[in-house]
Amino acid sequence: MKFRIYRYDPDRDAAPRMQDYDVALEPTDKMLLDALMRVKQVDDSVSFRRSCREGVCGSDAMNINGRNGLACITNLKDIKEPVELRPLPGLPVVRDLIVDMSHFFKQYHSIKPYLVDEATPPEKERLQSPADREELDGLYECILCACCSTACPSFWWNPDKFVGPAGLLAAYRFIADSRDQALNERLDNLEDPYRLFRCHTIMNCVDVCPKGLNPSKAIGKIKEIMVRRTV
């Protein structure tokens, strides 16, 4: 199978380049990650992150034929040759397919991604109705792979100011949690021309999320609550 892979090693290369590989696959190679392991067997300098190989750890996000996705759950049957692999767009490249995710995590951290409830907890669990718990479905499952934020033009232009779809999905995960007691602080934290309102509903985030989540909808809900608060 034929691949064109983005190569850049700041230790040796003056500029990035695309390198072609043609590797023989075994019948058991099913996913793009399996094929990438074959490439690495031929050339051990090809660098990418990977771990769980089942789409739950979020390590191997990359740009596959122009579209962000996880290599480990991208079926080889579904991609056209030569498969062009590039690092996630919009973030600094560390090496080859490995990007520096500092900005992405900084934005995630900025929304205070933890439950706030300063009251002394009960001896057992706090009670939560199944309906209240259901509000978290489609939110808590995010794997922080960054496919969405790095597919978002608003994030490309303002990675330091716009929280981005992943961070905002997490923000809404806590806003929506019946146990959380910091709604106003959370909204104050997003009330800003950039942090939330740079989202222009382009919907690339929804299109690429490998877990089928909908950050755009979550962002819409935060905006709604924000508006309701001001009237």
Binding site: L115, E125, S129, D132, L136, R179
Partner: peptide, 9 residues
């Protein structure tokens, strides 16, 4: 649960 774990209910 007190830390915020989203257990099913």
């Amino acid at each position: 649960e007190h830390f915020g774990m989203p257990f099913d209910r």
